[in-house]
């Protein structure tokens, strides 16, 4: 079953060289909307990373042990979405019971996550690339951390930019996209870093 790609290579590639946000543009909507402040970005980034790592494992199991044996692979989109939604709902309930402060800092972001395309994206990518469970977990975790890293860095830059004078038509989304483009360039610089042999 192994396709010869080591899990740490996948992990680091997902964070740096093939950051899901900066190279696949997944999760752009919440990225543009929430990246105004570092604090909220940290909350959302953390929530995304946790959900991504967990749902990639859950969906892998569902795919391998339910969808494939029953020949229902074509229904995977529905199943993945439902599992993600259910998991997010569950986490929300648990956090609400366990800790008020955690709920205040993390809980409010959870509803946003269900519609974050990056999460479904990770699940679909891992299936199409035929990852093993371990690879899928590290891919999910790496992508989540990579996404969090990108949004936190963006929020930091945007906070600094708040006082800068930006051409009128470019203010808001425009300048954010340009910064994202420059960040993507910077992340491309990592591409020589990982040598998988």
């Amino acid at each position: 079953m192994s396709n010869g790609i080591t899990f740490y290579a996948i992990f680091f590639a997902a964070i740096f060289t093939n950051n899901i946000l900066l190279t696949n543009y997944l999760g752009m909507c919440s990225f543009l909307a929430v990246s105004r402040e570092v604090k909220t970005s940290q909350g959302l980034g953390m929530a995304v990373a946790i959900v991504m790592a967990a749902t990639s494992v859950l969906n892998w199991l569902a795919y391998r042990y339910i969808l494939v044996p029953l020949d229902l692979v074509y229904l995977r989109f529905i199943v993945f979405i439902v599992i993600i939604a259910a998991f997010v709902q569950l986490i929300e309930m648990i956090i609400e019971r366990v800790s008020d402060s955690l709920y205040a800092s993390l809980g409010i972001f959870l509803p946003l996550i269900t519609v974050n395309c990056a999460i479904l994206g990770v699940c679909l990518f891992m299936v199409i690339r035929e990852y093993t469970l371990l690879q899928a977990f590290f891919y999910g975790l790496g992508s989540g951390i990579g996404w969090a890293l990108a949004i936190i860095a963006m929020a930091g830059i945007r906070q600094k930019m708040a006082k800068a004078r930006v051409p009128k038509g470019l203010a808001g989304a425009g300048i954010t996209l340009i910064i994202a483009g420059i960040m993507a360039l910077a992340f491309m610089g990592f591409s020589g870093m990982i040598q998988i042999t």
Binding site: N24, L170, A173, G174, I175, L177, I178, G181, A184, M188
Partner: peptide, 11 residues
């Protein structure tokens, strides 16, 4: 054709 291009174009 690489990722940053799309960001710049859209902006």
């Amino acid at each position: 054709v690489m990722a940053p291009g799309a960001f710049f174009m859209l902006a």
